[in-house]
Write a protein that binds this DNA or RNA. Structure first.
Lengths: 148, 148
DNA sequence: GTTATTGCAAACAATTTGCATATAA
DNA sequence: TTATATGCAAATTGTTTGCAATAAC
């Protein structure tokens, strides 16, 4: 099993940010560092809370601005699960990615990977004559009845 | 190629609504009738606009309430594409469904179906030991370079 | 008549923006 | 020094709600 995110994301992101002429400022760096240790979805609110815990808080405006910048640069994925809150997660520079299952009983969001699914999507792009640049898959599920 | 939605949705929905003890009131009926002729995604705002055109407008509150009811009854799918607006579409009672491709150049949303993808998801549920109750797939794509 | 439904306007929550100030380069 | 970043507070946007009036059954 591979790790979903690793330290390379942090370096990669810093490089991309610098390359875009942006500065290593306190507010944005705090967001970047937090995301680097986080493989799966976080809301802006959750990010604010965690940063407050470590005293590296920024204003909500700063957090939203940082996330927008990171998203524009392709460094984070934005994900709307349908409850009116956006969630963010780092984009692994290796291209490896995962998708999400929303557990209906608990509301938990758990990541998963599936080769067959990825292959199906690749084939689909060819069939439709389109260049598929990205994809999101959201499953809603519950523990199988009679399961463990 | 099969039609994605057909008149049976209208009848089915009316039946389900009646069965739930709800009335055939003007506002909700207008929303239901509009959705019945619409196979793919509409925002609440778009629904309001179209209803205004035909004079069958309701207040936005009524439209949202109707959509919420329909969603609770499993008659519509709600779909958050990540721009902060929810989109809705009828759920075909036959169980047949489609997914969406957001065209990056135009912003258009086009529906597609793919058997292999559906099979991959089915297999995935089994592999994970979960009962997958629903799934959404969103592709972002652009016309293939050198394409038709 | 009873109960669901509506409209209005106010309430909300998440996110965005203007602008003066602070800060990295 | 100079452009980028920040904080604050006000503004927006999409959606929800309370409540009195209205319409289905």
């Amino acid at each position: 099993m591979h790790r979903i995110t690793d330290t390379s994301w942090l370096e990669h992101s810093n490089e991309v940010l610098r390359g875009a002429g942006l500065r290593a400022s306190a507010g944005r760096s705090a967001v970047v560092e937090l995301l680097a240790c986080q493989s799966c979805l976080l809301t802006a609110q959750e990010i604010a809370d965690r940063l407050r815990e470590t005293g590296s808080a920024g204003s909500t405006a700063t957090i939203y601005r940082a996330l927008e910048t990171l998203h524009d640069l392709g460094l984070v994925r934005r994900f709307d699960s349908g409850e009116g809150v956006a969630r963010y997660e780092p984009v692994n520079p290796s291209g490896e990615h995962h998708h999400h299952i929303v557990m209906e009983n608990s509301g938990d969001v758990v990541p998963f990977e599936d080769e067959e699914l990825e292959r199906a999507i690749e084939g689909l792009g060819e069939r439709l004559g389109l260049l598929v640049t990205s994809h999101d898959i959201i499953l809603r599920a519950r523990p199988a009845s009679g399961g463990p």
